[in-house]
């Protein structure tokens, strides 16, 4: 089954250039051969490059990296802290741009991604590749030189993992793509932690694991109601390869693993009582929504259940990290206020 999809994907890759030719609006006004959508010949705007960086994903990366920095023992000069967050954000944006460059051939066939700058013809593939590469190198060098090389190295690993391991290797070959590839989204708090301490510790690994375990149920909930998109472009997402019911079962399994992992900061001293209570309550809701997805398998209600889990999963991760942030900020500010 997987091999079949692998073959389909290879076929898709071979036709990538042909599709680009077909989708190229016009060379009349100066578009370069191979440049998708250069037809308007007015070139990309600054905002189009910003859109390449996946601003919404970037905001979550900034937030989790900030939590990693503030939860870490020790301190970092605010200027260096700002540089660390900026570098991590730009690094994440660079990954997004390189992902959009590589996936341009399938993005234009999926409803969720068809409005991205390359499918719309606002930015050429060459421009996206150049922009992503320059941003990636700049962000890693800046973080390494100005903050420390453990953080810089982790940022380089994150970008490489997302671009080479997830985007180029796993995404089109295995239904486990987001399970393994999810690691790249889990690194930012670890980078933030390393920016302050200069090392990787058990606490930062726990922060990594929370996002790592959260990614599969989060993404598979989305894939449940977007599986036709993935099927059309030959991406072997779990619902496409193993079926909807198996995906629902996997969502429940990963949710059951996620909840204790998410509660663990309360037991290792990384989170306090408020965090413990929040993770327990939100974890119970997460499990309830996951079981609803498992139970409701027919009609619009099934899609609705999946959408509810997807929406709640975003809130869940945000809330857990927000409480951690609040607790650590309070611990730092209360002594100052006397």
């Amino acid at each position: 089954m997987q091999q079949g999809f692998g073959a389909g994907v290879s076929g898709g890759l071979e036709t990538k250039k042909k599709q680009n030719q077909m989708n190229r609006p016009a060379e009349v006004l100066g578009g370069q051969p191979g440049d998708v959508g250069a037809g308007l010949a007015i070139g990309p705007g600054v905002g189009d490059f910003f859109a390449l960086m996946k601003p919404r994903v970037m905001s979550l990366v900034i937030f989790t990296a900030l939590v990693g920095m503030l939860a870490a023992p020790g301190s970092l000069h605010p200027v260096l802290g700002f540089i660390a967050v900026l570098s991590i954000a730009v690094g994440a944006g660079a990954s997004g741009a390189l992902n959009m460059w590589y996936d341009a051939d399938i993005d234009r066939h999926m409803a969720r991604t068809a409005a991205r700058p390359i499918p719309r013809g606002l930015v050429t593939e060459t421009e996206a590749l150049t922009f992503g590469t320059v941003m990636a190198v700049t962000s890693v060098l800046t973080l390494g030189v100005l903050v420390n090389w453990v953080a810089g190295g982790l940022l380089a690993l994150t970008i490489a993992f997302y671009v080479f391991i997830y985007t180029m290797w796993l995404k089109r070959r295995t239904p486990q793509n987001i399970v393994i590839g999810g690691a790249s989204g889990a690194f930012p708090p670890m980078i933030g932690w390393a920016a302050v301490t200069g090392n990787v510790s058990i606490e930062s690994i726990v922060l990594f694991l929370i996002i790592f375990m959260w990614t599969p149920p989060h993404f598979w909930a989305l894939a449940l109601y977007r599986c036709r998109d993935y099927e059309r472009v030959g991406v072997p997402m779990l619902p496409v390869v193993a079926g909807l019911q198996e995906t629902r079962r996997q969502i429940v399994i990963y949710s059951l693993l996620l909840v204790p992992v998410a509660a663990s900061p309360a037991f290792i001293g990384l989170g306090g009582v408020v965090y413990g209570v929040t993770s327990a309550v939100l974890g119970a809701i997460f499990l309830w929504l996951a079981f609803r997805v498992y139970r409701i398998t027919e009609g619009r209600e099934a899609d609705k259940a999946a959408k509810q889990l997807f929406g709640f999963s975003i809130f869940y991760l945000f809330a857990l990290f927000a409480v951690l942030l609040g607790e650590h900020l309070a611990a730092r500010l209360v002594p100052l206020l006397g």
Binding site: V79, I83, L86, T142, V145, L146
Partner: peptide
């Protein structure tokens, strides 16, 4: 970028 490198060096 130049300003960031300058300020970070001083810090």
């Amino acid at each position: 970028l130049v300003v960031l490198f300058y300020v970070a060096t001083i810090v």
